[in-house]
Amino acid sequence: MATVVLLAATGLGLGALYFLVAAGLSLIFGLMDVLNFAHGALLSIGAYATWWAASGHLPGAGSGGAGFVLAVCFGTAVGTLAAVVLELALIRPLYGRPREQVLATVGVGLAVPALLSAIWGPDARPFPGPAALSGTFGLLGARIPVNRLVLLGAAAVVLLALRLFLGRTRHGLVVRAGVEDRAMVTALGIDVRRAFTLVFAIGGAAAALGGALGGLYYGSVDPGQGTSLLIFAFVVVVMGGMGSVAGAALAAVGVGLVQQFANYYTTSGLGDLAVVVLLAALLLLRPRGITGRLA
């Protein structure tokens, strides 16, 4: 029983991490048809910025209490900024050329981890965090690491905030409409490109937050962390439906749990394999899940 609970908690934590990456990925693809291969890099940027700030380089920030919160905020802000720069500098000039947009994000996805390892070395760095978050708590006989809870909480807050943004604000309305039919949104007199920058900012913020909290989950940061998460986030996006935040949340939980349980109860690695095969199967059975819009 304890094992099941621990596996479930770990799977949920992983799912939360996937959701933080996939939510933005899904919105960006849904709205702009751009599969953002640089999304993992945004996560890494958030992770390294948080690590940098929490290691005492940012005045006021640190590894404990309010200092750590400030470090996470800093990491998220840096990731958001990077996403906005990416959209304005590379995606926007290539508007109308989806193949080149994807290639540009591929290039960024290669260059950013390389830059990170050039600056801070290719090896994993221990991630500082508040002592309160590094412990465990008891649940149904299992010792659950607190950081799983932090990830889940953060993912829940992001999910709620995104739902409110999409459902209650005019910008959110524009994003939802744009996912259905971009051209019609502009034909109503709305500059849909502002929504593009906005979803990049939102996606970057969520991914960078995922990076900051993923550092707690893994206990360390390394340059390739974000990229290795990306493929699982793709699975979540395809499973949840492009542009659907709620779908991404459900799929993320499913993928995280399946992966954990399969890895534990069968051979190690089979869970990862199952998830990847699932991606291929989903795409083949339901290609509209990624290529088609309703309109």
């Binding site: 309305l173 939802r176 409409a177 259905e180 039919d181 019609m184 034909a187 309703l294 309109a295």
Partner: peptide, 10 residues
Amino acid sequence: PEDRGVFAGL
């Protein structure tokens, strides 16, 4: 527009 351009999900 010709196809009415109504956002079905809204």
